[in-house]
Write a protein that binds this DNA or RNA. Structure first.
Lengths: 213, 213, 213, 213
DNA sequence: GATGAATGAGGATTCATTCAT
DNA sequence: TATGAATGAATCCTCATTCAT
């Protein structure tokens, strides 16, 4: 964790450092990310960095926790109607995930990079993997109880499918709609009928594939 | 391309260099991968490396082509019955892809890394992205003609789903079965009934989700 | 330009680095000059060099500007009587040039090397070539107006002659007088009657050759 | 000196190596000149080079002697009328020197570079310097005996003037005439009236300046 | 608490030279 | 005699980290 000196910094300065670090680590490997570039752009002294953080890894893991917190808060800030059905809830959940990706692309990018590269500390890696899976699995099991999902479906496998699809769906939709000129940037992704249609289609496929009907 | 010098090397030595380079580039970013480490582990002089390769990028693109060739040959070596239906063919295709991933994890890893990082030459990048998408989309369109896939499905979106799922499915199955002690390594992944069952289930979900019935 | 770091250095250390760099670049081509040798002799870390300068070229162009400044200041410090005739002025000018060469041989050497090798940035190169020629040519044209130089003389050609002769004359006199034991070093070159006699002779030859009489 | 193996080479191959070496050493410092580039362009093996020459310096000094021999032969091939006066002879001599420079620019360039950089073996350096000076001085002394040159002129100094002027005059004329579009390449330098006029003017200046009249 | 100079290991690459075939 | 692979020191430059002020 960063040292107290970091948290005692004026908000504006602290945020500037965070933003630049996010940019650097979202565009580069852990090894390739450069502390020198960050401090140069932030306009702070090299030595000051080490007043704020233990070392490079300290900053990196801090950014990861920031990402986790931001996503948790993002989801918690827009809670859905608890009465809706399983697939409606999954629809809300994945839409929220994609919205988060679009709203905070750097935070998401660092997270993805961390998971893929296997570079993050073993504990966090396990935590991330298990965390996502466990959550989705509980959701699936609940859906089976409620009759929304066929009891023959392996809950863990279904959780994997949701996770795999929704982790890539955002950038797929974004690329596709931009390639065809429908969108200029991603902020308004879910405001186009085209995007809604594609998004619905994915969920219908999964619903038909896993459902009980 | 590597120089003649490299191809004139004794097989054992050439292979050792390739193996170490694969390990290095599969575990590291292009920038972070170190020629120095490779030559140190290979027990060759730093200068010798430059007798074999033009530069770092030469080695890197060589590894990428090795991967492409190996995968093409792998798929070509086990051609399926051309008469089978669309989902049977997709089943064969994804199983073959996963088998390749398990057989040559480093080659696969370098390829994934290249696609994700956007670091590879523009031509190859476009080729890879378009190649995969186009291939799957044609497959889907053909399936719609043959009545295996509902005409209401957006072919491009379906291609995305296949691609997203099967690019992650291999490592999911591997991790899952290893965690539960079913497997020691991945070589025999498809020889367990458990794996077959899970694999079938994914395809059944997709078939029901996209099918015409 | 060097970074602030360099100018904040203690005078003694900064001067030591400059002196060693002057020695290196005056004895070697740009390519052959070695940053490694400079830092080794200066007793500073390799990385420290890059705290002071952007890169090798930064140091090189800095040395060139040092030379230009030093020469400009040297000439400006000993301004001649503006009423003297053309050849008296040229005599003063070439004597001053030679004195500078003897006082700062390394600075001169780097300048000569830069002009000859065509290695310096195009702008500076053109500036140097044109600058010297233009200056001398104006001088010749003025001499023609004042009746000191025959109007039949091509001004540009005369400028070339002055430039060619005076750029080599200094080292010729130095070598000659040292070979004959008249001098030990060049500092006192113009204090010997022998040197004065030779120097006058060159100017008399040119004056008779170009004059109107 | 090169080894016998070099002189036993087929003429065509030996000449190709010489030409490429001339190009390399005329464009680069001794240090910066690259044996690797020479052998690559010559299409010979690295090892073969060391069958022909002891080392880099061996090749370099060989090129210098080639230059000296070529110039001596060039001058000897077009001997002037021995009855002409001193300045006519100097005129012939400098014209011949410039023609040689234009005919064999690389050989000349290497020679100049060697003299300027002080890089060549002490013996050759001394030999070159003394050689040129001694020759010109004898010429001047002879001119004084014949009454062409004032006896008050210091012969050594006059020799220096000739040497300094004529060593630069060729490239000055070339640049000047090319800048003004009079010439395309230097081969025909002395065939333009403009060049003849400038050349004559230099000699007239020296003749008036040093003469007895 | 802030600074920024100093450090030396490490990065990729080029070089002249040697030597076994 | 010809070859060309092997070598390791040298090149410029970047890096994360330390420490005295």
């Amino acid at each position: 964790m960063p040292k107290d000196t970091f948290f005692n910094l004026p908000d504006e300065k602290r945020q500037r450092i965070i933003d630049l670090a996010l940019a650097e680590f979202s565009e580069n490997d852990y090894d390739s990310a450069s502390i020198s570039r960050i401090v140069a752009q932030a306009g702070i002294a090299k030595g000051s960095f080490y007043q704020y953080f233990e070392n490079k890894e300290d900053l990196y893991t801090y950014l990861l926790t920031l990402g986790a917190e931001a996503k948790a808060q993002f989801l918690g800030d827009n809670p859905p109607d608890p009465q809706m059905g399983t697939f409606a809830y999954i629809r809300w959940l994945s839409a929220a995930g994609i919205k988060f990706e679009l709203a905070r692309p750097q935070l998401s990018q660092i997270g993805y990079r961390a998971v893929r590269s296997g570079a993050l500390p073993v504990e966090m890696q396990e935590q991330a993997r298990v965390g996502a899976t466990v959550f989705f699995r509980q959701l699936v099991e609940q859906g089976q109880v409620m009759g929304d999902i066929s009891p023959e479906i392996d809950p863990d496998l279904a959780a994997f499918l949701f996770s795999a699809i929704f982790s890539e769906l955002g950038s797929y939709l974004l690329n596709r709609l931009q390639d065809r000129g429908v969108l200029e940037d991603g902020r308004s992704l879910f405001e186009t009928p085209e995007a809604e249609r594609l998004f619905d289609q994915v969920l219908h496929i999964l619903e038909r594939g896993m459902g009980t009907a």
